[in-house]
């Protein structure tokens, strides 16, 4: 028996929330996608500039969350990268944004380009600027993820510190 027939025989309670798209002919599929597309365009026209900004920022926040929960590290996804996205999605210039959070534009530029680490105060200002939509902890975790990579892969610091360790355990687990 076809699944769609099985489903029609069930009561709404038995069906619960499960559903499957109906089997459509190619023409019906195209018509459905076209109708979705037309409705989508209608929604687009109704969206205000604020709606569009919210959508952009929600996307950014979910991308940040997913990156943080992933076990892999991506060098391109630095603190500076996400900060730049946060500013650009609001159609702001770095200079104007620096002014809004009361920091020197050159410091902002250094942070964006990963030439300088942001302070706790800077991260708190980001939380406040975003009206807590981007909590300080999400920015802090980005930094922490970067630091994790640095500390795992920094051979230079290991070579430099070797001479200070006068005695060590003689076994490995």
């Amino acid at each position: 028996m076809k699944l769609s027939k099985k489903l029609t025989r069930n009561s709404p309670i038995e069906i619960n929330e499960s559903f499957i798209s109906p089997e459509l002919t190619q023409a019906q599929k195209e018509e459905t996608i076209l109708s979705f597309r037309q409705y989508r365009q209608k929604i687009e026209l109704q969206r205000s500039a604020k709606d569009k900004l919210i959508v952009q920022l929600l996307q950014l926040k979910y991308l940040m969350e997913d990156y943080l929960s992933a076990s892999s590290h991506n060098e391109a996804y630095s603190f500076g990268f996400f900060l730049k996205e946060y500013i650009e999605r609001q159609n702001k210039k770095n200079k104007d944004f620096a002014n809004e959070i009361d920091i020197d534009p050159s410091l902002l530029s250094q942070i964006i380009h990963s030439h300088r680490k942001p302070s706790e105060e800077f991260i708190i200002r980001l939380e406040l600027h975003s009206n807590k939509n981007f909590p300080a902890i999400i920015w802090y975790k980005l930094l922490e993820k970067e630091k994790e990579q640095e500390i795992m892969n920094d051979l230079e610091i290991r070579n430099l510190q070797k001479k200070h360790v006068k005695r060590k355990l003689e076994f490995s687990f």
């Binding site: 769609s4 619960n16 929330e17 559903f19 798209s21 109906p22 409705y39 959508v55 996307q59």
Partner: peptide, 15 residues
């Protein structure tokens, strides 16, 4: 952009 579309039978659609 947060838009979800679907096609469902009337009973499920109402739910």
């Amino acid at each position: 952009t947060g838009v979800i579309m679907l096609v469902a039978k009337t009973e499920v659609a109402n739910l």
